[in-house]
Amino acid sequence: MDLLSFLNFYLVPGIVLGSIYALGAIGITLVFGVLRFAHLAHGDMATMGAFLVLALVAGTGMNPWLALPFAMIATAGIAVGLHWLFYEHLRRRSAILTVIASLGVALMLRAIVQVVWGVDSLTYVGGIVRPESYFGIRIKDREFWTLAATVVLVVALMLFLGYTRWGKAMRAMSDNPDLAQLSGIDTRLTTILTWTIIGLLGAAAGFFLGINTELKSLMGWYMLLPMFAAAILGGVGRVEGAVLGGMIIGIAEECSVIFLPSEYKSALAFAVLLIMLALRPTGLLRGKVL
C-alpha cells in the first residue's frame, strides 16, 4: 500500500471519525469532571441532535449545515431539561444512581427517536458525493467541513474555559466542588451551563456522524463506547485529552482494518479502554482517577 492510499483510505476517514469521537468525548469528560458521573445517555442525546437537524431539513428544506446551529440549541435545551427532570433530584445521592438513571434516559431518548423517525436508515441529502482531490489527497466537502467545524468548536470551548469568568468557574467546580461553593461560585448555574455546552457539542457530534455516514436510531448508542474510551484515554476531566483520545481511537479504528477483519473495528475501542484502565488509569494527560 502506498502513502496516498493510506492517507485516502485510512488516515482521512480516521481523522474525520476521530473528530466526531472527540466532540462526543468532550461532553462525556465534562460530565465526569464537573458533575462526577458517567453519562450513559450521551450517545442518544447526540442521536437526538442529529435527528433534529433532519426534522429541520425535512420541514423547511434548509441546508443541513444551516440547520445545525438550531438543532444544537434545541439539544442544549433538552440537556438542561433532562438535568432538571432527572439528574438534579439525584445530586445528593450516590453517583451510581445517577449513572443508572442516565441509562433510563438513554432508552427514553432512543424510544422517542424510533417512534418519531422510525428504525430505518435515513440520510440528510440523497445522491452520491464525489471527493475533491488536493495534491492526490481525496477529501469530501462534508469531511472538510466536519474537521473545520470541530476545530472551531474545540477552540471556542478552550477559550471559554481558559479566559472567561464562567469558564473558569466550570474548571473550578471540576477541580474542587466544595471549594468552589465556599468561594461563592453559583454551582447551580455552573451546572446548567455545563449541560448547555454538553448538549451543543453532543448535537454537533451526532450530526457529523449522520452526515458522514447515515442516520440510525442506534447510531449514538454504538458511539458511546469509543467516546468513553476516548475520554478515559485522554484523561478524565481534560478537554484537550478528550480531543487527543478521540483522534487516537478514530484513527486506530480505521487503521485496524489493515490488520483485523472489519467486524473487530469496534472491539478496538474496548481493548484501548481496558489497557488504559489497567496501565495508566489517569489517562495520557493525567486526568481524574475514576
Binding site: R165, K168, A169, R171, A172, S174, D175, N176, D178, L179, A180, L182, S183, G184, I185
Partner: peptide
C-alpha cells in the same frame, strides 16, 4: 478549610480570581 483549600489544577492567579467570583 484545613485541607483541599486550593484549586490544584488552576494557576495561582486563577485561584485568586475564583475567590473574587
Amino acid at each position: 478549610p484545613q485541607v483541599d483549600n486550593v484549586f490544584r489544577e488552576m494557576t495561582v492567579q486563577e485561584n485568586l480570581e475564583m475567590g473574587a467570583f
